[in-house]
Amino acid sequence: MKGASKHVIVAGGGVAGMEAAGSLAEMGYRVTLIEKGQDPGGHLLQWHALFPDRRPAEEVRGYLRKRLNHENISVITSTVVEKIRHHGHDVIVNLSGGTEERADAVIVATGFDLFDAHRKEEYGYGIYDNVITAAELEEMFSMGKVAKADGTLPSRVGFVHCVGSRDEKVSNNHCSKVCCVTAVKQAIEVRKMLPACEVFCFYMDMRMYGPYYEELYRESQEVHNINYIRGKVSEASVNISNRLVIKVEDTLAGRPLKMEVDLMVLMVGMEMSKQGAGLAVASGLETGVNRFLETGDHHYGNNVSRMKGVFYAGTCTAPMNITDTISHARAAVTETVRYLNGR
């Protein structure tokens, strides 16, 4: 078999890494997938349902698990790729624990970190009982119960968009793309679970860029009575009843507004992962002003690094949704195969 002797290391076992590994194995390449966690799956492991159709995340997880279940793939877990260097025709990878692996090519798929909500101090995450992140709400969906810290049900929930995105104050000027539609999806789910609960989204712009996103936004208004207030939340505090008090400008009414909510959900954005950033520094891979990996060309070389034999897949290059991540991973495989064939 043509590729059988060739070995590709995939750094990172999230959506991009799993898809890339699966595609390569299918084409007959020998693949080693290095995953830092105990199991492959990445952020998707924490997700209950996916936008825009609210299908169970488990369906996509199942697909990806099947992709990995191939005799050409070996998976190394609880291990991190610390450094990549090119040596002759080989790419040498240093793994945590001090071992080295040799490969013919490497696909970096180190993914993203969720923005650490503690850094927006004014929202009181980690201090006020009922300030949670979108990821924590997703866990509540998985558990089948959306509740306040004291176990009681919320009667009003507020979603705060753009937490850690589009915000110079936390050094993130970029848009994380998926948080708007995630908020709409989660808002609908809250209303479905708790029909008596009022739901508000505090947004700056509604960026419904993908297929059926705008339709989901429309459905949220038409069917689920989600309320939208255009303004960036400036601070949150608690009152004597331990309800959160949100301050915002209702920019469309042109007046400051305050509102009590029982649960405040922070739509935390995507940042370059710490692990990916460390790998980039150690290996001399370029990063952009947004701190994600800089690709060879934004239009036609978006999977290519500036190091021979090293390719990029998924959100280590920029925020993207699952659909785009899978496509991006397949494109990374195409670039890798082209490189290996031409070598």
Partner: peptide, 23 residues
């Protein structure tokens, strides 16, 4: 400025009179 209204949400003057920096 992209008109998010953060300024006018936190504005001490705009709490009490019709002043709105975003506008």
């Amino acid at each position: 400025c992209f008109a998010c209204g953060g300024c006018s949400a936190t504005c001490t003057a705009g709490e009490h009179i019709s002043f709105n920096l975003r506008r």
